[in-house]
Simulated assay, not measured.
Amino acid sequence: MYSSATSPTAPRIGTAQRTPTPVAVRRPVAKPVVPARPAGRIEAPGFVPRAGERLLRPRVPQPAGYGAPSAGVAGNWGKVDNAALGTPAVKAALAQITRICPAFSARQVLRQEGAHILITGLIGRTAVVAKCLNPQAVQADRRGVLVDRFRREVAVYRAFVRHRPPVRMPRLVAADHDRCVLVMERIPGRPAAIERHPANAPTPGEVRAILGAVRGLNLWRPPTDVFQQPLDYHFEVARYHSVGQLTDRDAGDLRQLLHGLGHSNWQLNHGDALLTNVMLAPSGPVLLDWEQAGWYLPGYDLAVLWSVLSGDTAARRQISQIAQAGGTLARDAFLVNLVLVLMRELRIHDVPGAGEEARLMIRRLHEDAALARRAVRAAVGTR
Score class of each variant (00 low, 15 high):
R190C: 03
V243H: 04
Y157V: 01
L94D: 01
G46L: 08
P230D: 12
H349M: 12
L309H: 08
L261A: 10
G14V: 12
F150A: 05
R107I: 15
G121L: 10
Y233P: 07
N269G: 14
A209T: 02
R57V: 14
G52M: 06
G353N: 09
P230Q: 15
Q96N: 11
R99S: 13
A375G: 00
E367T: 14
L172D: 08
G124Y: 12
G86P: 03
M184Y: 03
I319R: 11
L261G: 05
S283H: 10
Q256E: 14
L254W: 11
E113M: 07
D141Q: 15
E53Q: 15
R359P: 02
P202C: 04
Q245N: 09
V29G: 09
T276S: 08
R37N: 09
A89H: 03
Y296L: 00
W306Y: 15
N337L: 06
M361H: 10
L340D: 10
R208W: 06
F104M: 06
P20I: 07
D368F: 03
A193F: 06
R215G: 07
Q228E: 14
L254D: 10
Y240D: 13
L335I: 00
S283T: 15
A39R: 08
Q62L: 12
D232L: 10
V129R: 00
A10T: 13
P28C: 04
R158M: 03
P170V: 03
V60L: 13
P38K: 05
A16T: 12
A379D: 04
N218M: 12
A323W: 03
W266N: 02
R239C: 09
H116G: 03
R196F: 10
G311N: 14
T15D: 11
E113H: 14
R111L: 11
Y233C: 12
M1P: 13
V167T: 08
G46F: 07
V109G: 09
F104C: 05
D232A: 15
L246P: 13
L329P: 00
D272Y: 06
R316Y: 05
E195L: 13
V25T: 14
Q292N: 13
L275D: 03
Q108N: 15
I194W: 06
A106T: 05
T120A: 07
A84S: 14
R164G: 07
M184C: 01
L182D: 01
V226K: 04
G75V: 09
V304T: 11
V286G: 02
T9H: 08
H241I: 06
